[in-house]
Design a protein around this nucleic acid. Structure first.
Lengths: 195, 195
DNA sequence: ACAGAGTTAGAACCGTACTCAAAGTTTGAG
DNA sequence: CTCAAACTTTGAGTACGGTTCTAACTCTGT
């Protein structure tokens, strides 16, 4: 609708306010029990109002993921900029992987994959985050090895997908497969290729 | 409860009947709109009855995944047994990856990852399927290369997780990232390592 | 035939996503 | 300053689906 885009442009601050409330709500009540009411309460408004801005529960969650991911994107850049290549690699892996089975950012990803958005624009934004992570990783790898641009890119994409797969197991809570296990596995794979 | 385990033992056929109905229902009405009613209709019973056997919607879905995965496990063994190593590798990748964004088996996985089961027994069974795929892949790889048992196992696990990650993108429906793209990416990675 | 356990159906219940109409607030033109 | 139009906000209302409950039914063993 025209309404939607107008609002998005006019009141980005309001949307951000709701999305922060959503993050807080997820942390506090957990994903399984999350109601729109929980978000509305924390944002200091009514459930109808939250729906007025976002249209549906799923849209709120997708938007929350987009914000959370954009946020991390910035933090990542800022933090990795002044680390040497080895430390940067280690830190990137740490930032990428879930902290545990209840990691909010990853729970959001899981949710969105289980009920994917229909509109292409959102899908492209999600893809953008995939690419951003891969690009950052590729840059670090080039500092660590004599790989060419193409090979580094390939390495980066493969390892991002590897981390996605490992994250699934962490999210499931498979016994023994926790965050530390995942990190170790990724770094081992990277080292074995980089020599 | 005692009730639950008793039923599971006494009436495995009834459970299987419902689960097959669930698969059918998912195919027909899609995941987003799936109601217990849709499953009950197809199984020729009431919603109350379905819940009597499974206790909750989530349990039905987890059980459906377990059955579907066990089924594929068998089919895979049977089919790969009489293929040469190259063909077997190709076919395993094809069987593992989603056929498209609506692949029922993978939608079930996505659902289960988004709302993981609590009980350890189920988690271990899920882990069992991970291991089974990896073992099968490792065996094929050993036929194709001179890798040792340990290296082949490592190769297999890494590539299973890689396929999981690629599957996420297929499920999301990221433009350009379809089933064929995923297959190509996996095989490229495998070839590059196996030489 | 009967008791009692196990099974089945479907109505009732309850919680939650979503709608809607009306009231409140801001904005900007005259 | 006034007023109307657009936008915002609310909360009650609706619809719907998961879950629970109860009462009827079936089957088995005696």
């Amino acid at each position: 609708m025209a309404r939607e885009s107008k609002i998005a442009l006019d009141r980005p601050d309001m949307r951000a306010h709701v999305l922060k409330a959503a993050l807080l709500a997820i942390e506090e009540v957990g994903f399984a029990r999350l109601r729109i009411r929980d978000i509305a309460d924390r944002a200091g408004m009514s459930t109808g109002h939250v729906l007025y801005y976002f249209g549906s529960r799923d849209r709120i969650l997708v938007s929350t993921l987009l914000m959370s991911e954009a946020d991390l994107d910035e933090r990542r850049r800022a933090e990795l900029a002044h680390l040497d290549a080895h430390a940067a690699l280690d830190r990137l892996v740490e930032l990428y992987l879930p902290k545990g089975p209840h990691d909010v950012r990853w729970r959001l990803w899981a949710q969105v994959i289980a009920r994917p958005p229909e509109d292409e624009e959102t899908l492209l934004r999600l893809d953008g985050f995939f690419r951003s992570w891969a690009a950052e990783l590729a840059a670090i790898v080039r500092r660590l090895s004599d790989l060419g641009a193409e090979a580094a890119e390939d390495f980066a994409v493969r390892h991002c997908r590897l981390m996605d797969g490992l994250s699934n197991e962490v999210l499931l809570g498979i016994p023994g497969h926790d965050a530390a296990w995942a990190k170790k596995a990724v770094l081992a794979s990277m080292r074995r290729e980089l020599g």
